[in-house]
Simulated assay, not measured.
Amino acid sequence: MFERWRALIPTREQIGSNRWLRWLAPYLGHPKLWHWSRRGVALGVGIGVFFGLLIPIAQIPFAAAAAVILRANLPAAAASTLVTNPITFAPVYFAAYKIGAWVTGEKLEPPAAAAGTTPADANAGIWRRITALGTPLVVGLAITASLIGLASYVLTSAGWYWYVRRKRRRLRRS
């Protein structure tokens, strides 16, 4: 299975030869960014999940930059940002808002009765409610991204350890 994944991931040479990514080649030349080790992959997954949950846009560039700085596995960091996608986006952000509202103590007021209001007043009320989501959502996303990113690092590292241990036992038995 790992071989199939590795075949889909572009190599350093392919990135260096791409005219749009050629300027990144000096930063992407470190061997640890492409090495499949327990520490590198676990750190890459943790970074990718963190940025995948924390910010709604440009997740892969932020995760890749953090992976370069921390010398984590770059393909694992980029791929694990896909933890949020069109299917998981709404439940993740709703849960993050609920966590943030619980931590900050803020509550979203229910919409007022629309009778007798002009469309401009109704739009202002919607905008006020959307901006009221800000603090609880940001706090909830920071907490969620930190905890799930750390948990994904630990689980990936532990899973890798147990996989290698089991594989070595099988080799010893045969």
Rank of each mutant, 00 (worst) to 15 (best):
V45F: 14
S157A: 11
A7D: 05
V139M: 00
P86T: 11
V41D: 01
L155D: 00
Y153I: 14
V139Y: 00
A112N: 09
S80A: 12
G40H: 06
F2R: 13
P136W: 00
R129A: 09
A76F: 10
A7T: 03
A158H: 04
I99Q: 02
A145W: 07
P61G: 14
W102F: 09
A65C: 08
G134D: 01
A64H: 12
R165Q: 02
I143D: 03
P86K: 05
T144D: 04
P119H: 01
T81P: 10
P26T: 10
K167R: 10
F62C: 04
G29L: 15
A67G: 11
A64P: 15
N123Y: 15
V49I: 15
S80Y: 09
R166W: 01
F2M: 12
V92T: 09
D121G: 07
A151H: 04
P91G: 10
A67L: 13
G105D: 09
R6G: 15
T104P: 15
K107F: 11
W36E: 08
A78Y: 05
A42V: 10
Q14M: 11
A7N: 15
G44R: 14
R38Y: 06
A63T: 12
V138H: 03
L150V: 14
A63P: 12
V41I: 05
S146H: 07
S80F: 05
R170D: 06
W5A: 08
E3N: 09
N85F: 15
R22D: 03
N85V: 07
T144L: 03
A67S: 13
N18G: 02
Y163A: 07
L137F: 02
W127D: 00
K167T: 04
G52C: 10
I126G: 00
V92Q: 13
S174G: 15
P31Q: 03
S17F: 07
P119C: 02
E13V: 04
Y97N: 02
T118A: 05
W127L: 02
I143A: 02
V139P: 00
I148R: 01
S157H: 09
Q59A: 03
W23P: 00
A113C: 09
R129G: 07
T81N: 01
F51K: 00
T104C: 07
A124L: 10
G125C: 12
